[in-house]
Design a protein around this nucleic acid. Sequence first.
DNA 1: CAATCAGGTCACGAGGTCAG
DNA 2: CTGACCTCGTGACCTGATTG
Lengths: 110, 110
Amino acid sequence: METSDVPVGVADVSITDSKPNPPAPTNTASMLPPCRVCGEKASGFHYGANTCEACKGFFRRSLKKKGEYKCVNNKDCNIGPGKRNGCPKCRYKICLDIGMSKEGKYNDSI
Amino acid sequence: METSDVPVGVADVSITDSKPNPPAPTNTASMLPPCRVCGEKASGFHYGANTCEACKGFFRRSLKKKGEYKCVNNKDCNIGPGKRNGCPKCRYKICLDIGMSKEGKYNDSI
DNA sequence: CAATCAGGTCACGAGGTCAG
DNA sequence: CTGACCTCGTGACCTGATTG
């Protein structure tokens, strides 16, 4: 059911900065949907979901400590762009909600 | 010899770094610009501004007590290298003037 | 062989600590 | 109260493994 996330066709490439594309012109990350956790720019498919590097690393760290967080406000914190570090527990909860798991590569048995 | 009696804080408000750049801009704190508050050697980016360890700790403490200081001279005190402890209120004022805040980097305020 | 992802690495900053 | 030092989470980058 993840197929709806893929934007079909090269819509726009708003590369307006002074950086050319010397190597592979396959700007993959630039056409990905935003991170499912925090809404920032995703860097790829990680642990079964489109996430940014930050949330990818966060989830990996969370697996090690088994998600033993405590909510800062004892309620559902607002996780979004620019405020993803407010509450680790609620951030981790979103990770689980969107189906992130240890086996995420080509094994989407969710 | 450093700058004499020139108050460093209100000098310029050139906050030019609001964008996460991929490569490391500089090596270490040894080549950072001086502390925007007191003019001493900065130790890094703290709460949204280049400050020394002293002013970083001071600002953190100030946040807790909500900046409830009273000016020593009832006017704008001269904050500079070697005389940063003269008046907490005016020191805190400079912190706010240069844009220091809880949400300097990625943190959020709920 | 090229593209992609899991996991590792490490510099950086927030917040805590405590002697002075 | 001050400020030098400490710990820990964060996230950008790197590397190896795996896949088509």
